Amino acid sequence: MANNTTPLYFHQLFLRIALAVALLSAVADRFGMWPDQVSAWGNWENFEAYTRKLTFFLPEILSKASGYVATAAEIVLGLLLLAGFQLRWTGLFTALLLATFALSMTFALGIKAPFDYSVWVGSAGAFMLAGLNGFPARQG
């Protein structure tokens, strides 16, 4: 039988990779790196239009800026999750970012949209990652 820490580290690794891939895949989509058949946006312009829908309550310049900030955050957090760096903080910031997306989607598009894209599930998973005990010492 494996020691008691093995399952925790496997689950933590699986959750980290799933969250990171979800974040980085969304970024790849807005840069046109996914084929049209599976793409949500396909290019930056379509992503900006979608962001404008979600941030209808902001002036256009802030809406546009929010797309850049969200993209930068998704890249940084995705890479930090893959690296396993400062997982409590990285998990917390990922959870808050995804919760912000989910709330924006809910207010702009209705309750179904964030559930269809599992944004609440991703946020919950990131909160769980942030709260896990027993990280390897280097990940503190």
Rank of each mutant, 00 (worst) to 15 (best):
V76G: 07
G78W: 14
L79I: 15
L79D: 08
L79A: 14
L81F: 10
L81V: 05
L82G: 08
L82N: 07
A83Q: 11
G84T: 11
Q86S: 13
Q86A: 14
L87N: 11
L87M: 14
R88K: 15
R88F: 11
R88V: 12
R88D: 10
W89C: 08
W89A: 13
W89H: 10
W89F: 12
W89L: 15
T90H: 13
T90C: 15
T90V: 15
T90G: 14
L92E: 07
L92W: 14
F93L: 15
F93H: 08
F93A: 15
T94I: 09
T94G: 05
L96W: 09
L97N: 05
L97C: 07
L98P: 05
L98S: 02
A99W: 05
F101L: 13
F101D: 03
A102F: 01
A102H: 03
S104N: 11
S104D: 06
M105S: 01
M105C: 00
M105G: 00
T106P: 03
F107M: 08
F107P: 00
A108P: 03
A108S: 12
L109E: 05
L109Y: 04
L109I: 04
L109N: 03
G110V: 05
I111D: 07
K112L: 15
A113E: 08
A113V: 05
P114V: 00
F115D: 01
F115G: 00
D116L: 08
D116I: 00
D116N: 12
D116V: 03
D116G: 04
Y117A: 11
Y117C: 03
Y117Q: 09
S118N: 11
S118M: 08
S118K: 06
V119H: 03
V119R: 01
V121W: 06
G122K: 02
G122N: 03
S123M: 01
S123Q: 02
